[in-house]
Amino acid sequence: MSKILKINGLEKTYTSGNKQLTVLHNISFDVEQGQTFSIVGPSGSGKTTLLGLCAGLDAPNSGSVELCGHDLNTLNEDQRAQLRNREVGFIFQNFQLLPTLTALENVSVPLELQGAKHAAKRSMELLDQVGLADRFHHYPSQLSGGEQQRVALARAFSNSPSILFADEPTGNLDEETGEKVIKLLFDLNKASNTTLVIVSHDLDLANRTQQILRLKGGQILTNQPTAAH
């Protein structure tokens, strides 16, 4: 199997006042194409920072990230954005739907950015798959949390990404709704054969992925396959 994400010797430090704060230290791991992968750890362990670096939302202080065969260090901000638009899907803890766009328009954004011709049609299909076809003209503020996350799922899959990053996808949802969203996430993932990288502190969720990377204090504790593998 080919590797879709290769992380090598990643370091990330932030400056807070006069102090240097090391958030990630010497992180190296790979994610296989089509694999489901989770990053777990307590709060402040650097999970979200790592996810940001993996997706090219930020640049490391040292080390390299190779995403879909591209060394992110060699790409500028706009080239990374282009890569994300082509290859990456995102799911956020707080859904991050654009409040000024309807559900359908939110789902269409990645496709429209690509200049796709039938963005609306494809978006409607995805909304149908997440069970929200009848709510396509609703604004995010008119939807419940679970519905918003389902719209976010549809958006994440709209550009048929090679890899999907999910940051605490159930963090803002109740258990029942969260369960439904996760099921939908895995189903869609399976159907589209997308690589899935989930950041979570929920071990139950992590155990449903094929590989778990445990972080603590910005360092890798373990990187092991799960029973689901």
Binding site: A55, D78, V88
Partner: peptide
């Protein structure tokens, strides 16, 4: 600005 950050996550360039 938050919306713009999301757009950038989804692949919008700075110019866009």
């Amino acid at each position: 600005l938050k919306h713009i950050a999301v757009l950038k996550c989804l692949g919008a360039s700075r110019r866009q």
